[in-house]
Design a protein around this nucleic acid. Structure first.
Length: 477
RNA sequence: CGGGGCGUAGCGCAGCCUGGCAGCGCGCCUGCUUUGGGAGCAGGAUGUCGCAGGUUCAAAUCCUGCCGCCCCGACCA
């Protein structure tokens, strides 16, 4: 047997493992410009499934898609004080076009609150124009110092939802509803266990009144912010003069929200589920759910391929995304490893012996092989995919729970964040939070919605705790 | 931006110290034999040695400058 040719083992170098699997599984490659990536067909197919799933959920909650321009006048970004402060360091700005220097430089959108706000100020006249429930799938540019495929790239794909409402209550409800959509997507589709809640003042979106988030734990114990939903209050309404005449004849500012989920979630899927053999994709999003590997000699090639084609048709009829790997130049053993690297949940091995016995071998990416009658596969695989999803989710949840510690002293806190999440009290002071970050590299990730009410003292400075509950600290991506 | 590393075939690298035919492994192409956990043999193709300048009879190798990428830190979805 030849020596292993897989990715760098996770235990040896998690970061190298991550970069290896992305390249080897052909999800993405580096672009010629620093911090850019090319998403290859297999990776893009995953993104398309993510996008299709979320898009349907957005439409089901009453949103419509639209498209706003890539270029934003610099002046727009400067209208909201916190917003400009938050984003100006990472803006890409176009200063020349058409062979001339532009009179007003154009920002390449880092997000679209401002340009949508500008348009809303023109579109919204009366309470009858509300709510505005918009979403757009697009690319944005944020010039980051340090980049990493999917997790932090100069340009990334995402969706940004933007809504405007007549009342504060309605906007806050929308903020929570859309975070709920993300949580549902994470758990029911991506098999990612997440903790949802509020961001602290230090961590919130630049320009938001508050930010809600869902946080997941990667297999190296670090946290990944996987989707955020912001209540923007009237900050952008005031900056862009978005007003309406209400039923009571008063002229009022609208209340807005925004919410986004990016291809960063792909990084989350990779780092939550993957193992030393490569990726493991959650079945509902996997570009290929079942791969059939035919096994044949030249004299049995035709009959095996025919049996594979028949099986493929039966699975397709059940709505299963199935692929037959009929590449002649690779041996079955090579293909087994290749599809495991690519994270396909189930593999069906079909050889002459199986064809003769009218059976096939079903192998799960989570381990285990079983021999099943050919005629039963199509009927059984849907439930097996469902069970696979559940097992994947449970495995991730167990991992997270094992690496989450309740801590009340700073030494235990440091140990906890070195390997996972720490549930601790904090005084709520931004300076104290920054000190913790400097000393431990950990930041507050989320003030969980569902944490029990508790009072205590700040894990670092001992002052009375804010928030009325423990908060999650972790090193973050 | 600070610290470190690296640019030689598609990928990974050797060659550089001590200047003298540009190499190795993998991959790729052709053929035959193989095929139930990363096949074997034989034959073959592939280079702006990151870029520019300099020294020299001669530069991947020595000198100068530049560029790019990766890794580690501070900001971020």
């Amino acid at each position: 047997m030849a020596k292993a040719k897989g990715p760098t083992p996770q235990s040896q170098d998690f970061s190298a493992w991550y970069l290896d699997v992305i390249q080897m599984a052909e999800l993405a490659d580096y672009g010629p410009v620093r911090g850019t990536i090319v998403v290859r067909p297999y990776g893009y197919a995953l993104w398309e499934n993510i996008r299709a799933t979320l898009d349907e959920m957005f439409k089901a909650t009453g949103h419509q898609n639209a498209y706003f321009p890539l270029f934003i006048p610099m002046g727009f970004l400067q209208k909201e004080a916190q917003h400009v402060e938050g984003f100006s360091p990472e803006l890409a700005v176009v200063t020349h076009a058409g062979g001339e220097e532009l009179e007003e430089p154009l920002a390449v959108r880092p997000t679209s609150e401002t340009i949508i706000g500008y348009m809303w100020s023109r579109w919204i006249r009366s309470w009858r124009d509300l709510p505005q429930l918009l979403n757009q799938w697009n690319n944005v540019v944020r010039w980051e110092m340090r980049t990493r495929p999917f997790l932090r790239t100069s340009e990334f794909l995402w969706q940004e939802g933007h809504t405007a409402h007549a009342t504060k209550e309605e906007a806050e409800e929308e903020t929570r509803r859309m975070l709920g959509v993300y949580v549902k997507f994470a758990t029911e589709y991506a098999a990612l266990p997440v903790i949802s809640g509020l961001k602290t003042e230090k961590e919130k979106f630049a320009g938001a009144v508050y930010t809600t988030t869902m946080e997941a734990m990667m297999r190296d114990g670090r946290a990944l912010q996987s989707g955020t939903s912001h209540f923007l209050g009237q900050n952008f309404a005031k900056a862009f003069d978005i007003t309406f005449q209400d039923k009571d004849l008063e002229e009022k500012y609208v209340w807005t929200t925004s919410w986004g989920l990016s291809w960063r979630i792909i990084g989350g899927i990779i780092m939550t589920h993957g193992d030393d053999r490569g990726l493991i994709f959650p079945p509902k999003l996997a570009p290929i759910q079942v791969v059939i590997v035919p096994i044949y000699k030249s004299e049995t090639r035709q009959e095996v391929l025919e049996a594979a084609a028949t099986l493929q048709a039966e699975l397709k009829a059940k709505g299963i995304r199935v692929h037959v790997d009929d590449r002649d130049q690779y041996t079955p053993g090579f293909k087994f490893n290749d599809w495991e690297l690519k994270g396909v949940p189930f593999r069906i091995e079909l050889g002459p012996r199986d064809v003769a016995a009218k059976t096939a071998v079903l192998a799960s990416r989570l381990g285990g092989k079983e021999t099943l009658p050919l005629g039963e596969l199509a009927a059984q695989i849907p439930q097996k995919l469902e069970a696979f999803h559940q097992a994947l989710y449970e495995r991730a949840r167990r991992f997270r729970d094992e690496r989450t510690r309740v801590v009340d002293d700073y030494e235990s806190f440091k140990e906890a964040v070195a390997e996972g999440f720490a549930l601790a009290f904090h005084c709520g002071d931004i300076a104290c939070e920054k000190t913790i970050q400097e000393e431990t590299k950990a930041t507050t990730r989320v003030i969980p919605f569902d944490a029990p009410e508790e009072s205590g003292r700040c894990v670092r400075c001992g002052k009375p705790a804010a928030y009325g509950k423990r908060v999650v600290f972790a090193r973050a991506y």
